[in-house]
Design a protein around this nucleic acid. Structure first.
Lengths: 157, 157
DNA sequence: GCCGATTGCTTAACATGTTAATGTTTTGGC
DNA sequence: GCCAAAACATTAACATGTTAAGCAATCGGC
């Protein structure tokens, strides 16, 4: 079998951890976890989002996001409210405090990012983004799909 | 601020999730989590390792690994024993059942990997690995360090 | 040989990831 | 309008990530 250090998931994980080592200590000082920063950042960019949109964009599974919103609400950084016309749907937005927290954090994060960009090189960074974007597009065959390769079925959901 | 989808940590995360979507369902069918598979794979490659070596290679923090070993031991996939000369140090090795489980899983994982490799392209995959390896080498400045960037990391052993 | 400092793993406490089940609201066929 | 099915968020149960504290074994200076 391929050597462990030639595993693509491991290479992606290790690279990400190295990058996060730049950001995480500063986020912690700002009283934010990495995932909370993801949510705040996405909300700042979109003003208001539905639950499922936020989950999708921030790459969080619904159960994780659900708990995070409870905690972010307790910190008074976000607000969530049900849509009147459909009580199932949830709308999430930053509070004024959330916006303020974003403004403080974003400066610092942007500074760190420029440092990384400089160390790594703009061109290589662009190449990396391009390849990562392609990888992101890969999709396993769907069990019910009439494609070439098929596997087990049975997860009706 | 940069757009969220231009964040390097997010790009790495999203790419990794796309790749793991190929592997995870099959690991689950084999009764293994993603991290358990990491541990088994590393142990298969090294026969026997000390705790700290295993943690370092498999990119697991000691507290996570500690709990995992308890569960893997309960599943009878690994064995851990203290070194006689130093009762603090722990040695971990696969059990025969662990080896057998590896053998079953490795075939399937290798098959999936070749599928990914084919879809993504060997050359581009090699480029991606190269860039990821470079990213992995990045290290933030240490707070107490003189202004030149140095890495005072982990030559603990 | 004694004792405080260090080493190495484990526990603890909390947040998140992952899958399955639950509860509530809405939809759609009749 | 009625009711089963679907849609959505949450809760549950468990594993892992992360930081700090704990505990036992060992080391090192004396």
């Amino acid at each position: 079998m391929r050597r462990f250090d030639q595993s693509l998931p491991m290479a992606l994980l290790a690279a990400r951890e190295s990058i996060m080592a730049f950001f995480r200590p500063h986020l912690n000082e700002l009283g934010l976890t990495e995932q909370q920063w993801r949510v705040i950042r996405v909300l700042r960019e979109h003003d208001e989002l539905e639950f499922h949109e936020l989950a999708s964009i921030a790459k969080l599974l619904p159960p994780s996001l659900s708990g995070m919103l409870t905690r972010l609400e307790r910190l008074r950084l976000i607000k969530r409210r049900k849509r009147r016309s459909d009580q199932r749907r949830l709308h999430i937005a930053l509070s004024p405090e959330g916006v303020a927290r974003f403004d403080v954090a974003s400066r610092q994060m942007e500074r760190i990012y420029r440092d990384i960009e400089q160390r790594f090189g703009k061109r290589r960074l662009a190449s990396l983004f391009s390849l990562l974007h392609s990888a992101r597009a890969l999709q396993p065959d769907q069990p019910g799909q009439p494609s070439q390769r098929r596997k087990n079925r049975e997860q009706t959901r």
